[in-house]
Amino acid sequence: MSYLYFPGCSLRSTGRAYEESILAVFRKLQIPLTELEDWNCCGATAYVSIDENRAFTLAARNLAIAERMQGNGGGDLMAPCSACYLVLEKTQHYMETDEGVKREVTTALHRGGLDYRGTTKVRHPLDILVNDIGIEKIARAVVHPMKGMNVACYYGCQVVRPFQTFDHAAYPTTMDRLVTALGGRSVDWPMKARCCGGSLTGTIQEAGLRLNRALLKEATARGANIILTCCPLCQHNLECYQKRINRRFGESLHMPIAYFTQFLGLALGIPPRELGIQRLFVPLPETDGKRKEVPAHA
């Protein structure tokens, strides 16, 4: 069962480690991935605020290409970035429920020689790994149990809201179950699906800093020594502004922020460099000396 793979723009730039770790993990678990042909930017949250129909057309083009590649049976399209994931899901939702959107988008797609039937299912790697592959299979493949890791699983808002496709909108547990199966300890904390501010760290930085400060502080207070995310923007926001938050608010936050696939990869025994561990700004916690730490860049 091959999954079509939509990287999205972030995974080729700031979210490089996310792609590296996903590809390494999927290779290790022997899950076939095929990259979507000629994929384009999904438009993220920005375009839809400017022109809805064009934004949906942009996103729908990817779905149409996926359908063409999959044939009549349809299939799954994996979108690891939570924003891409939500944009694609939303596009599907509006194509089904809004006659106007459907008309405009289909006309545009036809001009490009493409058609839209709605047979592709948009999936997130968290959903695929935990629900398709299954916790048992993954647990059996663990060679390096992640002892000593107190993980605050952070889902962000886009992967569970509003459609709650594979987990609860306010109290999701998919990542927590994965972490436990990998030998780590999942910390119970109330902010796991709270917003990280998204692009606010760039536009209204004060707001973005406050939101991330709250998240980092609470995770620290609950005893976490690492936060795992499933979205490149969440990872960036939590990781890159810690010094600024410390300066601005007088905190002393120092929290490693990794992708859940990097964590999974380490547990499966994949060498850290293949998972992009060296790209982390805040190094992974020292737990057992057996694992080789890769020095972090500034």
């Binding site: 902010m191 709250a214 609470e218």
Partner: peptide, 8 residues
Amino acid sequence: AEVTDWCA
């Protein structure tokens, strides 16, 4: 909206 034990 919610009842939480997160203190700010």
